[in-house]
């Protein structure tokens, strides 16, 4: 293949961001617009000041033209994120439950629709940074528990998994190779590498 080898098994953060742009978000249109049928999705009839759900990429375009306000998702709010942060501290072996695309969505909204958010953006940025860091420290702690067959990633989001994937796969593959050198009698054939990562 002609793409560079580090992109064979892994996505770039910008690609993950692209995937996140397909998530739906509520907007508050300021103008009316007829519905548009697209191949993958449908933009509903927009009527001024009536909430509608559209993909984030549509919301961002309309927002940049000043044609709508974005209703921030309910988790993108200082109180909620603080709660999650406390949860992270309380459970050192568990990741708190955040949306699959929380980093990407919060980044997009913070940079392009900061005026629609309910809290000051510098405070949100700092709590998001804290959350990211504490989760990274946790997943790093988890690396000591790596083994040749499986890994639990419950609670991690796509971008976080994507970041550690090349490293974790490398280590696990090597562990598996070493593990398989020994014939263990009575053990079942075909121990396979767990694909939890995808």
């Amino acid at each position: 293949m002609s793409i560079p080898s580090h992109l064979h098994q892994n996505l770039m953060p910008s690609e993950v961001n692209f995937l996140a742009e397909n998530e739906m978000i509520q907007i508050l249109p300021r103008y009316s617009m007829k519905s548009i049928q697209l191949i993958g999705t449908k933009i509903p009839n927009l009527r001024a000041l009536r909430r509608e759900k559209v993909p984030i990429w549509v919301a961002l375009i309309l927002k940049s033209q000043g044609k709508c306000n974005i209703v921030p998702p309910k988790w993108l709010e200082l109180g909620y994120l603080k709660e999650k942060y406390d949860e992270e501290i309380k459970n050192p072996f568990k990741f708190s439950d955040l949306p699959w695309h929380w980093i990407e969505i919060s980044k997009m909204l913070l940079s392009k629709a900061a005026d629609d958010l309910s809290d000051p953006s510098h405070q949100l940025r700092s709590i998001i940074q804290d959350l990211k860091e504490i989760r990274l420290v946790k997943s790093k702690k988890g690396f000591t528990e790596l083994n040749e067959s499986n890994i639990a990633l419950t609670g991690l989001s796509l971008l976080e998994i994507n970041e550690i994937r090349p490293f974790v796969l490398g280590v696990m593959n090597k562990l598996r190779e070493i593990h398989e050198t020994i014939d263990r009698e009575g053990e079942e054939e075909g121990e396979e590498e767990d694909d939890d990562m995808d």
Partner: peptide, 27 residues
Amino acid sequence: MAEKYCSFFSDEELSEIIKQMIKERSL
């Protein structure tokens, strides 16, 4: 090299040591 020796001698002790080593060093 270690991998080849593990499989040649079926040296389980060595494979355990090497696995531990990979984990600690990779961290």
